[in-house]
Amino acid sequence: KELVLVLYDYQEKSPREVTVKKGDILTLLNSTNKDAWKVEVDDRQGFIPAAYLKKL
């Protein structure tokens, strides 16, 4: 599985998104959309803007 590093805090703005903190390391589920990547956070799945993430 692929991991990503969170570069900036992000507060979810819709039910399809998830809230993350800078420095979190998350499982990347889908990065086919260049604008928003799907990740898993504490058994929740949701989207975060790709600009907030860096592949490890």
Rank of each mutant, 00 (worst) to 15 (best):
K1D: 08
K1A: 11
K1T: 11
K1L: 11
K1W: 11
K1R: 14
E2Y: 11
E2A: 11
E2H: 13
L3K: 11
L3H: 08
L3N: 05
L3M: 11
L3F: 14
L3R: 10
V4C: 11
V4F: 03
V4W: 04
V4D: 00
V4I: 04
V4M: 01
V4K: 01
V4L: 03
V4G: 03
L5R: 06
L5D: 02
L5H: 02
L5S: 03
V6Q: 00
V6R: 00
V6L: 01
L7I: 09
L7N: 01
L7W: 02
L7K: 04
L7H: 00
L7S: 03
Y8H: 12
Y8R: 14
Y8A: 14
D9W: 04
D9Q: 02
D9H: 05
D9P: 05
Y10L: 02
Y10I: 02
Y10G: 01
Y10P: 01
Y10D: 01
Y10C: 06
Q11K: 13
Q11H: 14
E12V: 10
E12C: 14
E12G: 15
K13F: 09
K13C: 10
K13G: 08
K13M: 11
K13V: 08
S14D: 12
S14W: 09
S14G: 13
S14P: 08
P15S: 12
P15M: 09
P15D: 12
P15T: 09
P15C: 10
P15N: 10
R16G: 15
R16T: 14
R16N: 15
R16L: 14
R16S: 14
R16K: 12
R16F: 15
E17Y: 07
E17T: 06
E17G: 15
E17L: 05
E17V: 04
V18R: 01
V18I: 15
T19I: 05
T19F: 05
T19Q: 06
T19K: 06
V20E: 01
V20C: 07
V20Q: 00
V20D: 01
V20A: 13
V20S: 03
K21P: 01
K21W: 08
K21Y: 09
K21C: 12
K22G: 05
K22Y: 04
K22V: 06
K22H: 05
K22A: 13
G23W: 04
G23L: 02
D24R: 09
D24A: 11
D24K: 06
D24V: 06
D24L: 08
I25D: 00
I25F: 03
I25S: 01
I25W: 03
I25V: 11
L26F: 03
L26W: 05
L26E: 00
L26K: 00
T27C: 10
T27L: 14
T27I: 15
T27E: 06
L28S: 01
L28Y: 01
L28C: 09
L29T: 04
L29P: 00
L29S: 01
L29W: 04
L29C: 06
L29E: 02
N30Y: 06
N30T: 08
N30S: 13
N30V: 08
S31F: 06
S31A: 12
T32K: 10
T32H: 12
T32R: 09
T32W: 09
T32M: 11
T32A: 13
T32V: 10
N33F: 10
N33Y: 10
N33C: 12
N33G: 10
N33H: 10
K34W: 10
K34G: 11
K34R: 11
K34N: 12
K34H: 11
K34E: 12
D35F: 15
D35W: 15
D35K: 13
D35V: 11
A36F: 15
A36G: 09
A36S: 14
A36Y: 15
A36V: 15
A36L: 15
A36D: 09
W37H: 01
W37N: 01
W37E: 00
W37K: 00
W37G: 00
W37A: 00
W37Q: 01
W37V: 02
K38D: 03
K38N: 06
K38P: 02
K38W: 15
K38T: 08
V39F: 03
V39Q: 00
V39T: 00
V39C: 06
V39I: 08
V39Y: 02
V39N: 00
V39A: 01
V39P: 00
V39D: 00
E40A: 13
E40K: 11
E40C: 14
E40I: 12
V41E: 01
V41D: 04
V41T: 13
V41P: 01
V41W: 07
D42W: 09
D42T: 07
D42S: 11
D42K: 13
D42N: 14
D42G: 15
D43G: 15
D43F: 09
D43S: 13
D43A: 10
D43C: 13
R44D: 03
R44Q: 07
R44A: 05
R44Y: 07
Q45Y: 08
Q45H: 09
Q45R: 09
Q45L: 07
Q45D: 07
Q45N: 08
G46Y: 15
G46F: 15
G46S: 07
G46H: 11
G46D: 03
G46P: 04
F47H: 06
F47G: 02
F47P: 01
F47A: 04
F47L: 07
I48R: 02
I48K: 01
I48A: 06
I48V: 15
I48W: 02
P49S: 04
P49N: 04
P49Q: 04
P49F: 05
P49M: 04
P49C: 07
A50C: 11
A50Q: 07
A51I: 14
Y52C: 14
Y52R: 03
L53S: 00
L53I: 04
L53H: 02
K54A: 11
K54P: 04
K54S: 10
K54M: 14
K55W: 06
K55M: 09
K55V: 12
K55T: 07
L56T: 05
L56R: 00
L56H: 05
L56G: 01
L56P: 03
L56I: 13
L56C: 13
L56N: 01
